[in-house]
Structures are given as C-alpha cells and as structure tokens.
Amino acid sequence: MTTTVPLIYSFPEFEGVADAVADHVISAQNLTLYNTLDKAIVQKLRNSPLSTVLTEMVSSSSILLHSRSNSASSKADTLNNSTLGGPGTPASGRRVPKLKKKSEVRFKIALSGGSLIKILHQGLLSRESEIDWGKWDIYFADERLVPFDSPDSNYGSAKREIFDLIQSEVKPRVYHIDELLIDDPQECADSYEKILIDNFAKKDSVKLPMFDLLLLGCAPDGHIALLFPNHGEQLREKLAWCMPVLKAPMGPENRITLSIPVICHAHRVTFVVEGLTKAPIMRIIMERPEKGLPSSIVNEGAAGRVTWFVDDDALKDCYDSTKKKYKFLSIDEPII
C-alpha cells in the first residue's frame, strides 16, 4: 500500500470539532443542492421559486461567484483542498449553478454511530436555519442488530439525539434497517442493500451507490463502520454493498455494515475522531498505512476525497502528520 496523506484538521477541544464538522456538512449540503457556497444565492434559491431566481441570476453578473475579495478566493482554494469541490468548478473558484429543478436534487448522507452522534448533535442542531432537512436522505454506514430503543442502536441514538430534536416542520428522510430482521443478519443486510439499490439504482444502472457525504468515526481498535481490522474476508469484499458482521469482538455480536467499495465510492468521506483513547490507533493509521487498517484502506481507496476532523488529544502520538487550520465556509467562524 502506498502512503496517501489525507487532509487533517486539528482542534484544541471537542467544541471546535463539532463546529467545524457542522460547517463541513452544511457546505456539502449547499454544493449538492445549490452548486454554490455563496450565502446570498443559497438563500435566494431556498426561499424563492426556482424559475424567478434563475432568471435574475442569469441576467446578472453576480452569477460569477466567490470573486468579491481575496478572502473569498482563499476560501474557495480551501474548499477545493478539503474535497468539497467537484466537476464544473473553474480554477478561480467561481461556480455557476446548474439549471436543475429543486425536486431533482437531494443531499444523500450516511452516518456511523458512537461519539459521532454526539458531535452532530452539538454542531448541527444549533444551526438549523442553515439546514434544508426536507432535502436530506439519511442512511447508516453501519448498525448493531438490536432493538431501536437499545442504547447500542445507531438509529435509535440518532433519533433521540438528532431527529427527534429537529425544530423544522419538514423532516429528513431516514433509511434504517428493518427492526423485524435483527435476528437474521444476512437477511437484514440484504434488506438494507435493497433499500440502497432502490434509491440509488432505480433510474440508472450503477455498480455502487455514491453518497454526497459519508461520515465515519474510528474506534480505538481501528475499526470503522463495522469493518474490523482482523476480518480480512470482509475487507476484501468487492461486490456486496451491505454485509452482515457476525461475532463482533466487542458489544453486540451481530451487525451490518457498508462495504469498503461503497465507502470509498462516496463523493466525500469524512472521519471525525476525538479523545485521548484514539491517539495510539491514529498514529498507526496516519504513519503506518502498510498495516492495512480499514481507515488506512479508505485513505488510499478514496484518495483526494478524504478529510479528518480530530482534536489534539487524538493526534497526541502523531509526529509526521501535517495538520491544517480549518477555514469556515458556510457559517461564521465561532468566536473563541
């Protein structure tokens, strides 16, 4: 395995991670739904009939975005470097919104569980005015096969900590496992894969789903989603979109997870890691990719589209990793 260096943003404390991840998510939302980060144009597109807004935009020179100042250009450069750019973004950072109907575009995001839910709770719920919940399709990168009211359920935790607390009258579409199938891991995985096929391959023949953003944590043992370091057969899986996990080494034994090819195919893959207990494994991930940990495989397989948000504690043992200061793109930088 070659050494692939992902983009790493480091923060002195948990709150900084939560704020930056919220900005990162909202930026991905705006680029997906509106093809721009310009706040004024995003607001117009959110609040006005599409045809009226596009007529105004096409007849105005303001359609050339991010040209207002050197600061804006710097933010565009940062955006491209942080894997949020994409095809159709000129080198200057200017972006022309495509003429698409609002109903045609949805923000497809997949979440993992654990401390990531806490970080999203902290970062997103305080910024609901920037979020178009009604245009979100939320999936899960992994799930423990337990009842939804169990504290081990990723969907259950996300429901209690995020979905139930959304103030907007329009809610996101949330795609979770079938709770009736938790006693049959293979059938449960097949059922969830069918949901993915129905939603991503309904109109076009696709080999893999492409999420706009896939958010993952990383456990102290190095597993991501529910892909464990010593489960070689699953790490080598090439065809399945969703797989059962049997006899997991910790917690509930039976689970399901997205496969490595699906994770690596996402438009943006973002890891969120915090805490001193993650420091030893972070050093192996960042400085010993030849060890073949699942996250190192993703760093390589999704090279150029991977971003890490970590606190300083988690990077305590990393000596050769280059850290960057995060520049906020969609929301104002918090005053510290």
Score class of each variant (00 low, 15 high):
M1L: 08
T4R: 02
P6K: 03
L7D: 01
Y9L: 05
F11T: 01
P12G: 07
G16N: 02
V17I: 10
A22F: 05
D23L: 07
D23Q: 07
D38S: 12
D38C: 06
Q43Y: 09
R46T: 11
N47H: 13
S48R: 06
L50R: 14
S59W: 05
L65T: 15
L65R: 13
N70D: 14
S71G: 09
K75H: 07
A76K: 00
T83V: 08
G86L: 00
P90T: 11
A91F: 07
A91L: 11
P97I: 06
K98F: 12
K100I: 10
K102D: 11
E104I: 02
F107W: 06
F107P: 01
S112P: 02
G113S: 12
I117E: 10
G123D: 10
G123Y: 10
L125T: 12
E128P: 09
E130Y: 14
D137Q: 12
D149N: 15
S157T: 09
A158D: 01
K159Y: 14
R160A: 15
E161S: 13
L165C: 09
I166M: 11
Y175K: 03
H176L: 02
D183V: 02
D184Q: 14
A189Y: 05
D190R: 06
S191W: 07
Y192V: 05
I195G: 01
K207W: 04
G217V: 02
A219C: 06
P220T: 05
P220C: 08
I224H: 07
A225P: 05
L227G: 01
L227R: 02
F228D: 14
F228Q: 09
N230Q: 12
G232K: 04
G232P: 00
E233I: 09
Q234S: 09
K238A: 11
W241C: 01
M243H: 05
K247I: 01
N254K: 00
R255P: 03
I256P: 00
V262P: 02
I263K: 01
V273Y: 08
V273R: 02
V273F: 10
E274L: 10
E274A: 14
I281F: 11
R283M: 11
E287P: 09
K291P: 02
S296Y: 10
S296Q: 10
N299I: 08
A302R: 00
S321R: 13
K325A: 12
F328H: 09
S330M: 11
S330G: 05
D332H: 15
E333T: 09
I335G: 05
I335Q: 13
